[in-house]
Structures are given as C-alpha cells and as structure tokens.
Amino acid sequence: MTAKEWKFTSKDIANKPDLFLSGHRACAGCAPATVLKLVMKATRGPTIVTEATGCMEVVSSIYPYTSWATPWLHTAFETAAANASGIEAALKIMKKKGRISKEHVDVIAIAGDGGTFDIGLQALSGAVERGHDFLFLLYDNEAYMNTGIQRSGGTPHGAATTTSPAGRAVPGKLEYKKPLADIMIAHDMEYVATASPYYWRDLITKVRKGLEVEGPAFLHVFAPCPRGWRSNPAKSIEYSKLAVETCVFPVWEAVNGEYKLSIPSKVLSLAPQRKKPVSDYLKGQGRFRHMFKPENKALLEEVQRITDKRWQKLLKKCNLP
C-alpha cells in the first residue's frame, strides 16, 4: 500500500502501537516530542532509527530507560546521516549474504536544526550524494535548545537566543534562516518536503512518502519549543499552525524537484487575504518580544518583508501566481 492509497483515520493512528513511547523526559509543550510520536506512527514495517545528539536523543534514551520500541542508535551530534549510511550498507550486504532475513528495513535518521543546518550538514550532503536509502527527518525548533538556546543556522532573523541576545546595540539574530530544504532539493533528491505537526495528517503522509522513496528523502518539520521560544507550553501546536498561516513556514513537497504546495499553504495561495501578518505569529513568543518595541519597528517590517519575499519565491517555484 503506497502513501497515496493509505487511507487512515485518526482512530487508526491512535490504535497503532507507539514506537516512540511516553514517559520520556521532554519539557511540557515540547512539539519535537509530538513530532517524533507522529513520525513513528507513519512507519510501514521494521524500522531502525538513528538520532543525532540533541534534545530528543537526551530525553528519550536516558540509561537504563528508553522511549524507543524500535532499534535505535545514537553516536554523536554530526553523524545522523553517516550512521544511516552505515546501517543501510550493513543491512544491504547482510541480506545479500543471508545473514539476516530478506525483509525490508526502513532507516530513519533524526536530527534537530543544529544537527542538520550546521554541524551535520556535511554528513547529510555526503549521504544523500551517495544515494543511501533512508529518510532524514529534521525537527526544527530553531536553535540549540539542548545546550540552552543558542542560535543556529535555522534560527530566524530577529530571534533572541543566548548567543544572539536582543541587546542595546544588536536586536537579536541579524542573519536569515538558511533555506535548507531548497539546498536538499539542489542535491537532486526524489523527495523533499516540509511539514508542521498541527497538520498531522499531512505530516504522517509525508513521512510515509519519504520512506517509500528508494533512496534518500528529506523531511523538514517545524517544531516549536516553548522553553527556547519563551512561549506558552499550551500553545506549541497553535504556533505550528500560525507559522503556516503567516507563511513563515509554508508546507510543501517537491517530488523530483517539482515544488507543490500542500493544502494548508495552497489555500493561502488561492485566497491571499487569509494569509495572516507575521506579527500574529511573532507576538507571544519571548524570543521576538523586543521586535515589538517602537525602536525595532524596522526589524518587524523586515521579517514581514523577508517572509513575503520567500513566499513569493516559493509560489513561483510552484508555478503559482
């Protein structure tokens, strides 16, 4: 059954046994934990997970406990994709030699924004170039949260972090978020997509599509972090909706480089009046608080400008007006 044919109800998903178990030590309102739970609901058979050092690794594997009901490997911060390469190569040859059963095993590499945008990018690029059969899942909470909220290449413009604080001279991060999914498409990947946990059906379907690719696939998932964003833990899923509605984080997929907006973003392209101003998303998040001060008006306008610019660029790629 392919992802296209897979008609699942919320009940099906609820009834499917968890592979990422509760009892982990994630903070209240941690969207990455929700993302992982949903991702593991999309598996289609035996699956090995390898994870980069980071929040989700730390909260899920604290010895002698584990939240993983599937084989799981952590080695280091920058190695998720390299590990996936080794696992996939081992499975392939061991099957060929008859050392393990012929049954297909999916490999998922998971990393946060630090382990993907920054320290893990080389290994990811290499593994994709080599064409290993694995899904790379990026849960993007937009900073190094595990080490205490430092800026990463995935931190958006203007955000205050502990290494890009909003000070008297510098108002938060001056640089812009790296367009990582586009960089992955430039690797000529068969499947690259973005997703947000509010749109959970979309997310699960995309995970399944990524697993179905015979080769590397990349999924960039938006994942609010109330601790790092200084936001209300009850609103993480709301923010993951607002990020899409403001076009800060549009959801789309690219099959063989052909961009296509997914429905939540497609709706906004058809009815632009429904696109919300970025301030709707930014307000309430402590990391953007300084942007609402009168002296930082230009910064707020710049975030709107860059969001619009990137949205327009995306529409063009999707052949939409």
Partner: peptide, 12 residues
C-alpha cells in the same frame, strides 16, 4: 540493531 529485538544503542 535488530528489528525483532529492539535495542537502544549509544544512550545517554
């Protein structure tokens, strides 16, 4: 790493 006998490797 064996899907039939899930094991967590390289934990914290």
């Amino acid at each position: 790493l064996d899907p039939k006998n899930p094991m967590t490797m390289g934990p914290i």
